Simulated scan of single mutants.
Amino acid sequence: MDPQVAWEEMLAAIVENDLFEAELRAEYLIDWLDKNGFPPQTVSRVLPKEWDQMICRYVCRKVMMAVQTPGG
């Protein structure tokens, strides 16, 4: 899966409150980044790769934490 597509699908799943699907995309993205894959563009402005990676990792971790939190 393309990391940009995964990022956009994760955000769409968050909007739809489908945390199961969001978590699947988050896990994929973290794994992709851990294997030195390029990060998705996380915002409409073009940022340096390091910033997109930090934003992506942060949001993915928050998604995974929300799934593990009761009521999250």
Rank of each mutant, 00 (worst) to 15 (best):
M1I: 05
M1Y: 10
M1E: 12
P3F: 08
P3S: 12
P3D: 10
Q4M: 10
Q4D: 11
A6N: 02
E9D: 14
E9A: 06
M10E: 03
L11R: 06
L11G: 01
L11S: 00
A12E: 13
A12C: 01
A13K: 05
A13C: 11
A13M: 10
I14Q: 04
I14C: 06
I14M: 13
V15Q: 14
V15M: 10
E16C: 01
N17A: 11
D18A: 02
D18V: 00
D18M: 01
L19P: 00
L19D: 01
F20V: 14
F20L: 13
A22L: 06
E23L: 00
E23I: 00
R25Q: 14
R25Y: 09
A26F: 01
E27V: 08
E27L: 14
Y28S: 06
Y28T: 04
D31H: 13
D31S: 15
W32L: 10
W32P: 02
L33N: 03
L33E: 05
L33K: 03
L33A: 06
D34H: 12
K35H: 14
K35V: 02
K35S: 14
N36T: 06
N36S: 15
G37K: 11
G37R: 10
G37W: 13
P39V: 08
P39L: 06
P40V: 07
P40D: 07
Q41C: 05
Q41G: 05
T42I: 03
T42Q: 05
T42R: 05
V43H: 04
V43C: 07
V43L: 11
S44R: 14
S44C: 07
S44T: 09
S44I: 08
S44F: 14
R45A: 15
P48G: 04
P48S: 04
P48W: 07
K49C: 04
K49N: 08
W51D: 08
D52K: 02
D52N: 15
Q53N: 01
Q53S: 09
Q53Y: 01
M54L: 14
M54P: 00
I55G: 03
I55V: 11
C56G: 01
R57N: 03
C60S: 08
R61Q: 14
K62F: 03
K62W: 04
V63D: 00
M64L: 12
M64T: 04
M65D: 15
Q68W: 07
Q68T: 08
P70W: 07
G71Q: 12
G71M: 10
G71D: 12
G72F: 08
